[in-house]
Design a protein around this nucleic acid. Sequence first.
DNA 1: TCTGGGGTCCTAGGACCC
DNA 2: TCTGGGGTCCTAGGACCC
Length: 390
Amino acid sequence: MKKYRIIFHVDLNAFFASCEEAQDPSLKDKPIGIGKNSDRGILTTANYAARKYGVTSAMNVFEAKRRCPHLLVVPGNMALYQEYSQKFFEYLRTITSMVEPASIDEAYLDVTNDLNDLHPLDLAKKIQKDLLDTLKLPVSIGIAPNRFLAKMASDMKKPLGVTVLRKRDIEEKLWPLKIGSMYGIGKKTVPNLRLIGIETIGDLANFKDHEKLSKFLGNQTEGFLAKAWGESTAMVDPTRAETVHSVGNSKTFEGFLHSYEAMLAALTKLTETVVSRLHKKSYAAKSISVQVRYADFSQRSKQVALPQHSNDFDEILEMVEHLFEDLYEEKAVHLLGVSSSNLEKQEMLFKQLNIFEPKEAMEKDTHLTRVLDSINKNYKKPLLKRGLKK
DNA sequence: TCTGGGGTCCTAGGACCC
DNA sequence: TCTGGGGTCCTAGGACCC
């Protein structure tokens, strides 16, 4: 038994852009951004050729083109990225079974028991080379005794970096970093921490008045402090990502929506997407929520719990319409969203059935039959048609 | 610079039950 | 009649991440 665990954080560099380059190597030398090519759109990613001009991910397309006039804006191809992502995780699972996906393009690995006499640095370089050779995708890897340090380390050298961050390196490598670069500290919290003189991760680590700190960091105060000292204990958990907590779909309308009919039509479409995604993953939802953003960017949301879990299109659409009725303010609408949460696997609803008393089970059973009938029905009927006919 | 679409987790208050 | 403390579920909104 080793004293320290050896954790890798493997991060695909400029992932969406790298996928496009892997498909078409001629793009490599050209500055490209992934996103919808309209002035109001934003880029999800930019390749390194574009980053040289100061183009970054989440940057508005208009601004990106101002900085880099010959920027090529490529529309995203999610199916392609999903495919590459899947291959990425498949490969990582040949290294160790202890792979925890953290997003479409990053993973934590606990390689403590899978080094096979390799030095961690050599294993990291092998992973890097394999992924570049077989998938043509560059990755950065952070090596550390825990998840947090590994995550911070993989950020330190990009692209194609391998960075070791040991406990004894913290003061020199972690503490000088700006507080905003700490994972979990975002742009709302930074000014608050500045207010009490915290500019760097080191400042946070050595801040003595924990009570004052908790005004801004709340419940997570001790957690952040521990991380700043390089102590985080959460284990790599390969099953963590398996449980989905919500499934939603939202859309921004560039020209805004003005008529109630258009809004209802949009909500119907969003609901169709949500329901079909639920079916595909065989989930049923207990809560449904609708989100509205008006032209002035003010936002409202409303949520309701269903009597039972459901993924029935008509039932959910009815809820969505009710919710929207309550939210609607006779203003131009910029964004609409429909989301389902409180999810349960279809199989689990079956299993739960068995433990009920007969009478209760009967009642549940009729509902369940209805839900399942509707799923079968929905599989046969194209959802789009069903929605439009209403 | 004026902001996409997918998520996760947290907070605070209220309702309701024991 | 006036009242504690805990637990669970629900709702609205916000911060953060990729």
